[in-house]
Design a protein around this nucleic acid. Structure first.
Lengths: 148, 148
DNA sequence: CGGAATCCTATCGGATACTG
DNA sequence: CAGTATCCGATAGGATTCCG
């Protein structure tokens, strides 16, 4: 992924009346210039992919390779079977996870990330980095934007 | 439960044990990874910051500079006053937005991102990039991760 | 202009129990 | 082992109405 999300924090001070119609870095294309939450907006797509309690933890486990149902339950003991089942189904419906079943005995099921699922990795890393930044900035004055 | 990665170095992943099976870039965490969703986990912090319908669109508007209440309603016409009020309050409580009021007539109120709020910009960019990637990958499945 | 107060419904997520 | 089936309380968020 070639997005330069990591090193551009310098020019954020462009806060006043914008002479351009919109921020081309933040909103690269017309798809991003929506006036309401649309399911096909890239931001919504990404947000939907990681939405729901336990989802990011589940994705983290699957990033380590294919896992079975009970294996996942052991890795996340406080996650109920119902919710795990819900999450896995949602991830499959969104094409982020695929399942291989062996109907022989004992029944073996493996959940694995698809290519799309693996594409979520940079987002998880960015979520962690941003969360750390927020924790650092919280408390000692938010720091105001430049005064008019 | 502090994370060792709170000492934010340039590289995202660095941890004490190097023989572990999990991904050190993905999980920079210390003695062990969290096994449940905790409010102080950086990923949860970041996710909470952008959670809720309309929130990312609202943040996008505020990235362009301070805005008034009705101004925001015009920019996002389908966002109800109640939800806008809810969002702005939540953002204030999390230290992401601050408000300046002029009680003179007419009442003028401006909502502006704090430093912490501006720190969300890379995350929004990454959400957009990841969403685009997912839209490209959607449909034609994907490869499985390497089996253990 | 800039909100707060209510009300109302859909969905979420946890607990529990049962099945192939 | 790998799930499904129900039930249920708690929010989320939209519509509407009213206020300084």
């Amino acid at each position: 992924m070639r997005h330069a999300a990591s090193e551009h924090s310098a020019d954020v001070g462009h806060q006043r009346e914008t002479h351009t119609s919109w921020d081309t870095e933040l909103v690269p294309g017309p798809q991003g210039r929506t006036h309401r939450p649309e399911a096909d907006c890239p931001v919504e797509v990404a947000l939907t992919a990681v939405s729901g309690r336990w989802t990011t933890l589940l994705l983290r486990e699957l990033m380590g390779g294919p896992r079975g149902f009970t294996e996942l339950r052991k890795l996340l003991p406080e996650l109920s079977a119902k919710v795990l089942s819900d999450r896995l189904r949602a991830l499959q419906e969104r094409g982020l996870v695929e399942v291989e079943r062996q109907r022989a005995f004992p029944v073996r099921t493996r959940y694995a990330l698809t290519g799309a699922g693996q594409a979520l990795r940079p987002l998880l890393v960015e979520l962690y980095a941003t969360g750390e930044a927020l924790l650092r900035l919280a408390g000692h004055g938010g720091g105001s934007p430049p005064a008019p």
